[in-house]
Design a protein around this nucleic acid. Structure first.
Lengths: 202, 202
DNA sequence: CTCATTTTGTACCGTTTCGCATAAAATAAT
DNA sequence: ATTATTTTATGCGAAACGGTACAAAATGAG
């Protein structure tokens, strides 16, 4: 698949480097993160970073895309079709909180909502990728909701389009509140209420 | 009320200055806004800014607090007690969208969610003020919900605490999605669905 | 072995950044 | 008028910033 290249081989794994870069961006934001900080965190000097990913914005966009892709994977796992919709949704929120509540000094929230929103005005490509990321997430949930109607888990004629976006809305709020320092208990209560709201208070 | 001070009088209105500073922070974020940019936008040279508000973080905190206070005023207006809860909630979202969809190059979203979240990890005071701002908003809505139960607008035994936080959650999502570039139509549909979800699909 | 190719590391460039030192300007008090 | 007090304006300076030039190092090809 990947032929061995000609010149000096890379001394780093691009995927791991993106994760390290992601973590500093996550804590400090895009504008608040210097290339020096990124260089230290990734253990790559700036020319290597530049050669591998381009300038700071290009690196950030790569990180965004990796986060989007991984989020979709996590979502797909949570939406295990062998489980009822209620459990699926609970798992989506549970998985989100597991990510959001991680953090050394404070809970870090969602990478996109916490850091990409800030840049969305000045950097059009960030805004566009953010929009698409949210949309993809909504669509995957909507698809599961449509199946739920077929299976009789949701009433016939349910507006699955809006229901999915309401389900996402709860997650967006979890992200914001986690970053603001709300307690795990508080957030889990909101998640539970979200599930009840969408699936009915069982 | 305000005695005339001794020295040279200020050539600017602090409130207006805070609004101008807020607008540049809103577009570019805290870390992405330089003192030069702030100086140009407020038409104050840096030493004047520094003398009046302190350093960049102190200025930003002042802007945050002003935004929080104004948001609570807008919310109080939307929660006009002479109207039904359904109309109140619709007005809350309508008022939010009016603010969020404003913007020269792109919709700016919510000032706090778009810019304060990014700084919340590194700047504890930002995080704390953000948390308190969200909480105040939740509490005001909860208070209105409690009245709604008394008035029979909501079923007896409704969990007004969680209902209020779900209502806020929809607004948080509107904020994120507006910043991401979602259309007015899309956002208005989500707002409508939020109202229906909380108040029942009338 | 020799050469072409790619990555790495050092060092550097010009610019921007934040914050302050200092002096001029504008007012109230005396 | 003189003085004390506060704000304004110019300009400085040390540090950090993003980005790159350049040569050394490490590999494959011939």
């Amino acid at each position: 698949m990947s032929e061995k290249k000609r010149g000096r081989p890379r001394a780093f794994d691009a995927k791991v480097t993106l994760e390290k870069a992601r973590d500093v961006f996550w804590d400090r934001g895009f504008a608040g993160t210097s290339l020096d900080t990124l260089s230290a965190a990734t253990q790559l000097n700036r020319p290597s970073l530049y050669g591998a990913f381009g300038d700071k914005e290009a690196l950030y966009l790569d990180v965004m895309e990796a986060y989007r892709a991984e989020s979709m994977d996590v979502l797909a796992d949570a939406l295990d079709l062998s489980l009822p919709l209620r459990d699926n949704l609970a798992n989506v929120y549970k998985g989100a909180l597991k990510i959001y509540l991680h953090g050394e000094t404070a809970a870090r929230g969602c990478f996109l909502i916490s850091t990409a929103t800030a840049e969305a005005i000045q950097h059009e490509r960030v805004r566009e990728l953010l929009r698409r990321s949210l949309e993809d997430f909504d669509s995957a949930i909507e698809q599961r909701m449509a199946l739920a109607v077929e299976r009789g888990e949701l009433p016939d004629g349910s507006d699955v389009h809006m229901l999915a976006r309401l389900a996402s809305a709860v997650m967006h709020s979890l992200a914001v509140r986690a970053r603001a320092g709300d307690s795990r208990k508080t957030l889990e209560a909101l998640a539970q209420s979200g599930v009840d709201m969408i699936c009915g208070k069982a």
